[in-house]
Amino acid sequence: MKITKKDVEHVATLARLRFDEGEVELFTDQLNKIMEYFEKLKNVDTTGVVPSTHAVDLSNAFREDAVKKSLPSDESLKNAPDSEQTFFKVPKIIEV
């Protein structure tokens, strides 16, 4: 199945990316070539095969629900592009 420019624009929106016309064309072309290569997986019979999300057996890791030391807020905010008091600051979310 062919990926169209519209698909690329839709996926870019989902991924919160923006592309200009040239980039959309390049990505459409490259993604098509890559996805076409992936088609070879269709040749593998996977009936009844359980998918692996990890290679090593893992189960949920629980710990006591105890309060532990964490980063103080001023340390946590040090790398923030913008902050105020103990908050991260972002541009307007809702237009009034």
């Binding site: 690329v8 996926v11 990316l17 997986l41 593998v44 095969v49 999300t53 290679a55």
Partner: peptide, 25 residues
């Protein structure tokens, strides 16, 4: 883009799930 496409509605089974099954093999 590749990852988002492979996980997006309608393609998950054909790509991500299929790949995870072949990973088992």
């Amino acid at each position: 883009m590749l990852g988002t496409y492979a996980l997006s509605a309608g393609y998950y089974d054909a790509y991500y799930k299929k790949a995870s099954q072949v990973r088992t093999l």
